[in-house]
């Protein structure tokens, strides 16, 4: 891999909520009332190469959206660092956050919430570039037209309001708004999850076209494994704030190594597999407020042993370009899976 454009180094993010007055008073008698900490991200390290599309997959509470937000500079990491082209994305002490974060643009899940309903589409698209001086003022209109055409809409739509568009069209506008900033990295957070299948295919095609035309680097955050397989080069699987497996997409889908990845693949319904075959994962996702000690997946893992309960596994190499965080990552999982 060439020098990474984006380097995420040992990033942890904790959200702490201080107890309210009533909770503190009750806490005096019950011993509660202590601050509540959500461990959204724990020790996540990732490199993203220029022109790469990296998929980030996991269930709710796994920290995939928080990771996207940390990369976009919306949240500062509690520890660790995110660097874009060698410069930190978010550094609150020096107050340099806003200049750098223009280079990472996010596209959100719900295009009904992410577009200002009172602003014309053209104004929405022009706002960022104008504020940051990315496009000269006299070229703004022409640039907006070009952007709209680039995402498959008509230039004349610039004068319309968001309510005049369907969900798929709005998501195109959201993509155009992100592209208007000429970003180095796009973060798509469940960007096609709220769209109907037929519309989802249109937006995925658009994304793949843009990727080829513009050489985009992107993080594609999604819970939908089939969509991720279709558009991503590499895939990171997350569970309870940790990265559990990272591999090129074709290798991951052909041979998932982590027991969680295997279970995730098994529980996803696919078209044409026939009736009633769900090898569901047992149990529930633990709360990120009180993550289990050791490996976060051990309470649900069919292969868990004593070591898994005591010690969190580190990401280690499992073949060229792929890593897994599992104590059984020495061929043991495959042996046991064969036996099971």
């Amino acid at each position: 891999m060439t020098d990474p454009i984006l380097k995420i180094d040992a990033v942890s993010k904790r959200f702490t909520r201080k107890p309210g007055l009533a909770e503190r008073m009750v806490g005096r008698f019950t011993g509660g009332g202590k601050p509540i900490t959500v461990h959204a991200l724990t020790d996540v390290s990732l490199d993203v190469a220029k022109g790469e599309v990296l998929g980030i997959v996991g269930e709710s509470g796994c920290g995939k959206s928080t990771l996207g937000r940390v990369i976009a500079g919306i949240h500062a990491p509690s520890s660790g660092s995110v660097a874009l082209n060698g410069r930190p994305v978010a550094d609150e002490r020096h107050g340099t956050v806003h200049k750098l974060t223009t280079q990472v643009q996010m596209i959100h899940q719900d295009p009904f919430a992410s577009l200002n309903p009172r602003m014309k589409v053209g104004e929405t698209l022009a706002e960022g570039p104008r504020y940051h001086g990315i496009i000269p003022a006299d070229q703004v209109r022409a640039r907006i037209r070009a952007l709209l055409e680039q995402v498959g809409l008509e230039g004349a739509y610039a004068d319309r309001l968001p309510h005049q568009f369907s969900g798929g069209q709005r998501q195109r506008i959201a993509i155009a708004r992100a592209l208007a900033m000429q970003p180095e990295v796009l973060v798509l957070d469940e960007a096609v999850a709220s769209l109907d299948v037929s519309i989802q295919a249109q937006v995925l095609n658009l994304f793949m076209d843009l990727r080829h035309d513009l050489g985009l680097t992107a993080l594609f955050i999604s819970h939908d494994l089939s969509v991720v397989r279709h558009v991503c080069d590499r895939v990171a699987i997350m569970y309870l704030g940790r990265l559990v497996e990272l591999a090129p997409a074709d290798q991951l889908y052909a041979d998932p190594r982590h027991p969680y990845t295997q279970a995730l693949f098994a529980s996803i319904p696919t078209v044409g597999t026939g009736r009633g075959r769900f090898e569901a994962i047992k149990g529930e996702i633990p709360s990120p407020i009180a993550p289990p000690p050791g490996c976060p997946f051990h309470p649900r893992c069919p292969f868990a042993g004593p070591r898994c309960r005591a010690e969190a596994p580190r990401l280690t190499g499992a073949g060229p370009a792929r890593t897994v965080a599992c104590h059984l990552n020495d061929g043991g999982v495959n042996m046991q899976r064969g036996a099971a």
């Binding site: 295919a201 095609n205 089939s226 969509v227 397989r229 279709h230 997409a249 074709d250 078209v271």
Partner: peptide, 12 residues
């Protein structure tokens, strides 16, 4: 239009 039924990276 379901991605799973197509080769990755191909236009849907």
């Amino acid at each position: 239009s379901i991605p799973a039924l197509h080769e990755p990276g191909r236009k849907l």
